[in-house]
Each structure stands twice: as structure tokens, then as C-alpha cells.
Nucleic acid binder design. Structure first.
Lengths: 204, 204
DNA sequence: GTCAAAGGGTAACATTGTTACCACTTAGAC
DNA sequence: GTCTAAGTGGTAACAATGTTACCCTTTGAC
């Protein structure tokens, strides 16, 4: 009846968790090194040094694995945005947020790719995963509200302003990912678009 | 030595062209009805009522077929934009262009999907195909220039203004395609983003 | 020591893009 | 009319993919 020092289920859960991490990291490595077309179950299994069965016991199927990668990407992006120090000037804070986001996409394009559906055509993130992603941009909405309340921007519907801002950034970043623009061009276009949007938001 | 009434090569070329059309139309039908994951060589071949070999004699490989579909999408979008009547008011013309583009994407989402890389991960359009696509947006650049010259907008770098505008539209449309927004929301966000951008472009 | 339950390796399945092989058709030459 | 060469197209196979059935191993509990 005594609680065993190392519970069976507990140890197994820990092992599972460790394996989970290991598989996700392996998948990430494959992704970064070889891109999404190389992200196959066998390839990931090889990277882990095991058979595909291991992945199937940890994740329901490939969609499950990719969904986990999606959530990791969401987390990383959110952490990036949360790490931006809140500036006294609300507009400067917005600029810093955009800058941080752009830097993250440049450093980890795979995060952008998976979050924007540019990876696997038959993959659709789970409902909750999408909500997580959208929610992480609440930071932007809050920043916009601050700017409006401080009088640095005119009053506008928060949702529309946020979608316009994020959509604009993502659209321009997509061009770079698609090979239409060089990184330098992207920097110019992003800065121009941001300033133009902010100027437009300063008036009612 | 007489030129034959129906040259061998000529007839064959015509047959080829007709077949070309037939295969492309079949592929389009499969695409519209069943989406990109169903766009397999065998599926298209079935739709044509022939074997896959036919497709391989007409197109180099699947990328070749998809590239042809990409070019068709480019053409349709350009025709849509070219069909917009040039309004005396340059800003209203810009609004009409955006409206027409949005309507086209709503009616033929597959065009948007393939042009923005949301379809097949291993497909990359040919260099010339991408140029065709980018070039079709010269219409927007011209419209912007008209507005600036007429004094309806302040003077800004054409390329940046164009990229900001198109990027913004595409970014918001991507959200709808990705299932983040309803069509009604998309309409609101697009209108808001466009007006905000225009307002921002009215000032220097 | 025995047992139940979970994990994992092997080999197979269907489906994909792609191609080697072979038969067929057909325009032009004699 | 017959023949030749070239292009076309169907069949069946190949490798690679996601996925799973089968079976053996491991591991904690009693």
C-alpha cells in the first residue's frame, strides 16, 4: 500500500516526457537543416536513433507531431514578443515589437513558415493551436490600446487595427520567404509599411 | 516539295496544344473540387481519361504541371485587375482594384493559394513565372503613381508603397484562407487596412 | 518467479512521383 | 501498297512516403 519511491506510472510519464522532448528536438533539427520536405517520419526516427513506431506511440500521427512543432513555434514567437521591454512611448514600443518579430522570422524562418501554413499542404493545426497562435498577438493589441489611450494614436477598433498591422507584416514577410524580396528590401518595406500604418492610425 | 495542306508537325502541334488545354482544365477541375492534396498525377490522368504518361509527355513533371497552373492563376488575376475601369478619382480606382482583387480571391481561392505558396511545399514556381506574377501588380504601382501625381497622395517611393499595399492585402487574405477569419471579418479588416494605409500615404 | 501492460522493432500495406519497356499510330518516301 | 522513322501512350515496375499488424522485450507489482 505504500507509495513506491519511484512510481511506475510516474517514471513512465517522465520517460515519455523526455522522449517527447527528444523527438521534438530531433524533428526541429531535421527541419532547420533540411527543410519541410525532408521532415518525414523515417527521417525523424533515424535522427532519434529509433524506429518510426516510437513517434507513433508519442504522437497520434504526423499531424500530431507537426502540431507539436507548431505549438513550439507559437511559444517561441510569444517569448520573443514578451521579451521586448515596454517603452514609455507607446509608438516606440510598437516599433520595437515589429522589429523583434522581424528579427525572429529572419533568425528562425521555419517558425514563420509553419505558423503561416507555408509548410505542409495537408496539415491543419488543431483548433487550440490556432487559438494559441492568435492569442499570442494580444500583445500587439494591448500595445495598440496603450497608444490610443495615451493619445499617440486616434481611437480605432482594436481588432481591425491589430489585424491590419499583423497582416501587413506577415504579408511582406511572406514575400521574403517566397523569394520575392531580399532581406534588405524586406527591412525597407516593413519599416515603410509600419510607419505608414501608424501615420494612418494617428488620424480619425 | 510542295508544302502539304496540313503539315505533320503543325497538326501535331495543334493536337498537343489541345491536349495541353485539356490536361490543364482537368487539373483545374480536380483542384477546385478536391483541393491541392488530391492533385496527383494519377488523379489528373483519370480526369483526362488517360494514363499518367500523357501528362509526362506534355509537361516535364509535376512541377511543370503545377507551374502551368500557376501561370494560369497569374493570368486570371491580371485579367481581373485589368478589367477594373479607371476611375477619375485615383483613390477610388485604388479602392476598386483592392475590391476586385478581394472578390477574385473569394471566388477563386485556389488562385491565391498557389500564388502565395500555400499549396505544395516542394513546389517552387519558375523564375519567369514569379516575374509574371510580380509584374501583374504593376497595375497597382501605376495607380499609386497616378494618385501621387494628382496630389491625392503625398509623394512616396513607389516600390515601398506598392509592397506595403499588396503585402497588407495578402496578409489579411492569408488569415482568411488559413481559417482565422470569416469572410465578413476579412471584408472589414481589408477595408480598414486599406483606408488606414491610404490615410498614411496622404501625409509625407 | 510470474504476470499484465506498455513500448518498440520488423515488415508489410496503400499511395505518391517517376520511368523503362513495348506496342501502336502516322506522315512521308519509294 | 509498303516501309521507315518518330512520336505517343498504356502497363508495370521502382523508390519513397504515412501508417499499421504482428510479435518480442522490458518493467514494475505481487
Amino acid at each position: 500500500m505504500n507509495e513506491p519511491i519511484t512510481n511506475y506510472r510516474e517514471t513512465r510519464a517522465k520517460t515519455r516526457e523526455a522522449l517527447h522532448r527528444g523527438v521534438l528536438d530531433a524533428a526541429s533539427r531535421v527541419l532547420v537543416r533540411e527543410g519541410y520536405t525532408a521532415l518525414t517520419m523515417r527521417r525523424v526516427a533515424d535522427e532519434v536513433g529509433a524506429s518510426t513506431k516510437v513517434i507513433y506511440t508519442l504522437f497520434e500521427n504526423k499531424d500530431g507531431l507537426v502540431n507539436a512543432l507548431y505549438l513550439e513555434a507559437v511559444r517561441r514567437v510569444r517569448e520573443t514578443l514578451e521579451a521586448v521591454p515596454v517603452d514609455a512611448q507607446a509608438l516606440d514600443y510598437l516599433r520595437a515589437l515589429a522589429q523583434a518579430y522581424r528579427a525572429h522570422v529572419a533568425a528562425q524562418p521555419n517558425d514563420f513558415i509553419i505558423l503561416n501554413g507555408l509548410s505542409l499542404p495537408d496539415f491543419t493545426p488543431s483548433e487550440t493551436a490556432v487559438q494559441e497562435n492568435v492569442a499570442s498577438f494580444d500583445i500587439v493589441a494591448v500595445a495598440l490600446k496603450r497608444a490610443m489611450d495615451a493619445g499617440e494614436l486616434a481611437q480605432h477598433p482594436l481588432e481591425s487595427a491589430g489585424k491590419a498591422l499583423i497582416g501587413c507584416l506577415n504579408g511582406i514577410l511572406s514575400m521574403e520567404i517566397g523569394g520575392h524580396n531580399t532581406p534588405e528590401q524586406t527591412d525597407v518595406y516593413l519599416a515603410f509599411a509600419l510607419e505608414t500604418l501608424l501615420r494612418g492610425l494617428q488620424h480619425a
